[in-house]
Amino acid sequence: MTLFLAQVTDTATKLIDTAKQTTTQLATAPADDLHFGDLLIKGGWVMIPIGILAVLGLVIFFERYFTIRKASKDESQLMVQVRSSIMSGNLESAVAVCRNSNSPLGRMLQKGLLRIGRPIKDIEGAIENVGKLEVSKLEKNIGILGIVAGIAPMFGFLGTIAGVIKIFYDISKTDNISMGVISGGLYVKMVTSAAGLFVGIIAYVCYHVLNMMVDKVILKLETDAIEFIDLLEEPSK
């Protein structure tokens, strides 16, 4: 009986010592938590152009967004005032209203009003030319977002490939083919691919959002221009 108790005590003592050693090892082990900022820094020099593309894309998007949104405001009151002035024969008042509106539609109608007295085709042509100019102003720099959406992922893949090349170069110099060396360097370099794809996706979405907004403005301008031409043709019917 005494021998059995001694064996149990010895086993318990060994288990306690093992637990203490495990606890000490866990306490002194380095933390393996991934921090977003550290990953960005470890991405290397390729993260710099990707970051520049991200900032450029955001600046263009917000600048164009507010510009297009301003151009798409409701101009129904402007059309009412222009119609009222034309019906009363006061063209100077209609021109002044269009000039003061400071909007794409206002500039289109102003050009048409200044052509009154000429054939309808000439008036339509003048309005169409101004409309094209206004649309080109709205579309300014939107194409850059498309470029960002295309080249940002390429920069990301370039960073990953450069990282893989460096990993195999280090292996050839040190003759160390351990999985830790390969996977450790590779996951860091793949951060560039993730960053490039993220920037590319955001730029792609922003590009199409702005294009849809411009299309809505174009449709509205065309509708109002047709209404204006119909208004000019009413007295001659």
Score class of each variant (00 low, 15 high):
V214R: 08
G51T: 11
I229C: 04
A29D: 01
L26C: 10
S101V: 05
D170E: 07
Y65D: 01
L34H: 05
L105R: 01
A27F: 12
I161G: 11
Q25L: 13
C206G: 03
D170R: 15
G89T: 10
M87Q: 15
V164F: 07
V82C: 06
Y204D: 01
D170G: 09
Q110V: 08
A195C: 07
N102V: 14
L105E: 00
T13G: 15
E222C: 05
N100W: 10
D10K: 15
L34Y: 11
D74Y: 13
N90K: 14
A54Y: 07
G125K: 15
Q7S: 12
L221N: 02
R115Y: 08
S76I: 13
M47E: 03
S101L: 07
F66I: 05
V199S: 02
T2L: 15
S103T: 04
A54K: 06
L232M: 08
F66D: 00
I229N: 03
K132Q: 10
V199G: 00
L15M: 08
D74S: 13
Q25G: 09
F157Y: 02
R107L: 14
E63G: 03
L186D: 01
K132A: 10
I226F: 12
L113K: 07
D215A: 11
H35P: 05
I177V: 09
G57A: 06
T223N: 15
N102D: 12
G159P: 00
M190N: 06
L158H: 04
I202K: 06
S183Q: 06
K70A: 01
V135E: 00
M1L: 15
R118G: 01
D175M: 15
K216N: 02
R99I: 11
A94Q: 06
G106S: 06
L105H: 01
M213A: 03
L105T: 02
L186K: 13
R118W: 01
V130H: 07
K137G: 02
T23Y: 08
V95G: 02
P49M: 08
R115C: 06
I182M: 08
R69V: 14
F62W: 15
V181I: 13
